[in-house]
Design a protein around this nucleic acid. Structure first.
Length: 813
RNA sequence: GCCCGGGUGGCGGAAUCGGCAUACGCGAAGGACUUAAAAUCCUUUGUCCUCUUCGGACUUGUGGGUUCGAGUCCCACCCCGGGCACCA
């Protein structure tokens, strides 16, 4: 009789964690230059918040841990590191509240996180642990900034920041609500113009776009990056401006992707910020009205301006006309906030017949609408803009041409310039905050912005008590005079340090490189190590980083390549996004819904192995899935059943019984678990492990020890604790996690017979056990002899027979 | 509005090449063990007809199509999730 043994998971997990920790996870320590093939498994490193680890982390890191353990057993030298992305707002805000230094809070939170990760059984090479807030780390972030500065890719420019007049502080975008108010006090957020540091990521737009094709990434993430970069090819066309007396008073250049519609351009529209407006002010008859509109528009937040549901507004600059270069027609010039200054030239030619926005605008202000593209070459009354292709009409010498080929011809006709534009904008790199990497620049009244010499890096954050907001919109660092005032590295005169700090993205742009060489004080990474280990073979993390982090990191990496610091073009070869885990009510986990699952409690109640396996069993890694409190019971039960089986087997006396049937099942399981794990289909790998266990406990006989060992190895990446314990109970002294991954033997997968499926008119009517490689003739004979088949054929002869060897026969009557 | 995903039992999901739909797990029902409960073990479990089996009909969001055969391919539509959104 099979006896039930209760699995003492708490005892076992504690025992092995202690054991592994004693050697600082020697098993997971990676050689810099191994003989074995390398494999770099990376998970997006966490921000160590005060909340501790959440289930999303557990999902992300379990997937990575299973994969790293699997690859290691498959014979790779696996690099699987962990670190902390610890600069950023929450730590700073919490520090202000608790009157503690952010670094203390970070240190504490890291302690909590690390303990939780260890309890989950994750195996990292802790010798390579990094922390972005460590001066020894951010020294290199600053060094890279200086390189960007040196190459002209970091520059200063005035830009509006979000500013809360009540809190008297600059706000990060994430602190501004969707309604455009301050997250903390509800006051409407204002804009304040301040000098900001920018990174010229747009210089890399084309390469960032082109190289997306090199990546083994989810299609939607690639698509998102493409859209974000937003390349469009078009033309810049010049329109002469004339006043009421027909004097030429200037010129406006517009950007269009539809030069073929030029004859339909019945007015121009300028962005309210367009500098030419001021130059034209003497000729504008309604200048007061125009000025009023502009002031209004500039006060609006980006959110208000880009609200699509809003009815379009605008004002005409009376007294000024533009000349359409295609037909020399004088057309009105308007100003409207739906035209954006930062894209193209900040001015558009409006073709209301063939652009939805222009159509809407023209209807509202009763402007001319001229149809120039027609599907049938005829003119029609237009109910809405037609944005497709067609044949040109009302276009003088170009009538009858198809719109595609007309584009270049009309462009040539009016002397337009071919231009490529990108939606992507440069990256604002300054934050008015204390808890970030200081930007290593000194502002000298004589020499301007001077880089801090490399030998003086890092520029460390001053360790003072007051890092609360200054009230001016500047960084808290501005108030720390002893730190701010310094000497100019160039002329030696009195100068001030840059007081803005870097955004949280900075440290995460290159952390995957530092893991390769975390202690190097001469270089951020030894180029030989970079060459050996990059690119990252698999990068696992949340989709929320689909654009920003992943685009910044790709840019940063390409820049490092250009200065010869790395040899690879792209940092992350394969990307995988784990899906969000929702609460059991199907809503996003949140304190206010009370549906948050605490991993610590789950580990306490069910053990880490059960939690790991449940989270992987819930569904495909990339899918969104809802937590089910009962679900984890099933995996807890599975773990117990494994335990019981092995305890029974260890106690069973007598001879091992060779079991051909079980052997077949085992080898099928090896194949299935190997393939599924390789392809990150952990949920189906686990069900295969369950099926195999069901088979093993079906009969109460002594199973050969070799089978029991093989099964444990298959389970080891998933449940590292119980497998280690049982491996030792089977008499081994080494760790199961350094064992070789089992191979299946094809001979056990081969079948001598198969189940012939017999269909009549496509419907399954019988299943017949038949020898493999049965011929069609024999199959027919077998099928026709079956009473069920005769019944449905009604003794008629089949008109047609479909035969799929070793699978089915379909008799069509 | 545009661009991606997706829709399969009471629930999470499986079906990897167009060939047994519903694997595996949860839940539920019945039983064994127990004074009892928990735990554990066994049986049943898509819907309907026949309710005794044998068996049959139907079933992968909806409607059409291609095919000997469709969850899988094609067309149209409905619904859900995500991303982008005045980028000319």
């Amino acid at each position: 009789m099979m006896k039930f043994f209760k699995y003492p998971f708490q005892k076992v997990e504690k025992k092995w964690l202690n054991h592994w920790q004693k050697s600082n996870f020697k098993l997971c320590q990676t050689k810099d230059f191994p003989k074995k093939p390398k494999y770099y498994v990376l998970e997006m490193f966490p921000y160590p918040s005060g909340e501790g680890l959440h289930v999303g982390h557990v999902e992300n890191y379990t997937a990575g841990d299973i994969y790293a353990r699997f690859k290691r057993m498959k014979g790779y030298e696996v690099l699987h590191p962990m670190g902390w992305d610890a600069f950023g707002l929450p730590a700073e805000n919490y520090a202000i509240k608790m009157k503690k230094h952010p670094s203390e809070i970070v240190k504490h939170n890291i302690g909590v996180f690390k303990k939780q990760l260890l309890k989950m059984g994750f195996g990292y090479d802790w010798k390579r642990e990094i922390n972005t807030t460590d001066p020894k780390y951010y020294r290199w972030t600053q060094w890279m900034f200086l390189k960007l500065f040196e190459k002209g890719l970091a520059y200063e420019k005035e830009a509006p920041i979000n500013f809360c007049p009540s809190c008297k502080t600059g706000l990060a975008n994430e602190e501004v609500t969707a309604e455009g108010t301050c997250d903390r006090c509800g006051t409407p957020v204002e804009k304040k113009l301040l000098k900001q540091w920018w990174i010229k990521i747009t210089a890399y737009a084309e390469r960032l776009l082109k190289d997306i094709d090199l990546l083994d990434w989810p299609e939607d993430v690639k698509e998102m990056q493409k859209n974000w970069i937003g390349k469009s090819n078009g033309h810049q066309i010049k329109f002469a401006l004339k006043d009421d007396n027909n004097f030429k008073i200037g010129e406006i250049e517009v950007f269009t992707t539809r030069a073929d519609t030029l004859f339909g351009a019945t007015y121009l529209v300028l962005a309210p910020e367009h500098p030419i407006i001021n130059q034209l002010k003497d000729s504008i008859q309604n200048y007061y009205e125009v000025q009023h509109y502009i002031t209004d528009a500039l006060q609006k937040s980006e959110l208000e301006r880009t609200d699509l549901s809003k009815i379009k507004t605008g004002v005409e600059m009376r007294g000024i006309k533009a000349i359409n270069p295609a037909n020399q027609e004088a057309i009105p010039v308007w100003i409207s906030d739906y035209v954006l200054m930062h894209y193209g030239t900040g001015a558009i030619m409006a073709v209301p017949a063939h652009d939805e926005r222009d159509f809407e605008f023209a209807k509202k202000f009763k402007l001319n609408i001229t149809e120039v593209i027609s599907l049938d070459g005829k003119e029609h009354p237009l109910e809405e803009a037609y944005t497709g292709d067609g044949v040109l009409i009302n276009s003088g010498p170009f009538n009858g041409l198809d719109s595609k080929s007309a584009q270049e011809k009309i462009a040539l006709y009016v002397g337009a310039k071919k231009v490529t534009n990108y939606k992507m904008r440069d990256w604002i790199f300054s934050r008015q905050r204390y808890w970030g990497e200081p930007i290593p620049i000194v502002h000298c009244p004589q020499c301007g912005a001077v880089p801090v010499p490399e030998k003086n890096l890092p520029v460390t954050l001053p360790n003072v008590k007051s890092y609360e907001p200054t009230g001016t919109g500047e960084s808290p660092l501005a108030a720390i005079e002893s730190w701010v005032n310094t000497k100019c590295p160039k002329c030696g005169g009195p100068a001030k340090r840059e007081t803005n700090t870097m955004p949280q993205w900075a440290g995460s742009c290159w952390y995957y490189l530092r893991y390769l060489d975390p202690k190097n004080s001469k270089k951020f990474v030894d180029p030989k190590k970079e060459k050996k280990w990059l690119p990252v073979d698999i990068y696992i993390g949340g989709k929320e980083h689909a654009v920003l982090h992943l685009l910044y990191a790709r840019f940063w990496h390409k820049f490092l390549k250009d200065i010869g610091a790395v040899a690879t073009e792209e940092p992350f070869k394969k990307l995988v996004n784990q899906g969000i885990i929702l609460g059991s009510d199907g809503r996003k986990m949140s304190k206010s819904f009370g549906n948050v699952v605490n991993p610590d409690e789950m580990v306490k109640k069910y053990g880490a192995d059960a939690l790991r396996m449940y989270i992987m069993f819930m569904g495909p890694l990339e899918d969104m899935k809802a937590w089910n409190t009962d679900g984890i019971n099933g995996l807890s039960r599975f773990i117990s059943r494994v335990w019981s089986l092995y305890q029974n087997q260890l106690r069973l006396k007598g001879k091992e019984v060779k079991n051909v049937e079980l052997e077949k099942v085992l080898h099928r399981t090896i194949k299935k678990v190997t393939d599924d794990t390789e392809n990150l289909r952990f949920n189906t790998a686990i069900s295969a492990l369950m099926e195999c266990l069901n088979k093993m406990q079906e009969k109460e006989v002594k199973i050969p020890k070799a089978y029991l060992e093989t099964y444990l190895k298959l389970l080891a990446p998933y449940a590292p604790f119980i497998t280690e314990e049982l491996w030792h109970e089977l008499g081994h002294r080494n760790s199961i996690h350094e064992e070789k991954w089992p191979k299946y033997n094809k001979k056990y997968l081969e079948q001598k017979t198969f189940e012939l499926l017999v269909q009549v008119n496509g419907k399954l009517r019988a299943k017949i056990e038949a020898p493999l490689n049965l011929s069609q003739k024999e199959a027919e004979k077998l099928a026709l002899a079956h009473p069920q088949v005769q019944k449905f054929l009604q003794n008629a002869k089949p008109k047609k027979i479909i035969f799929v060897p070793n699978r089915l026969i379909n008799l069509v009557g």
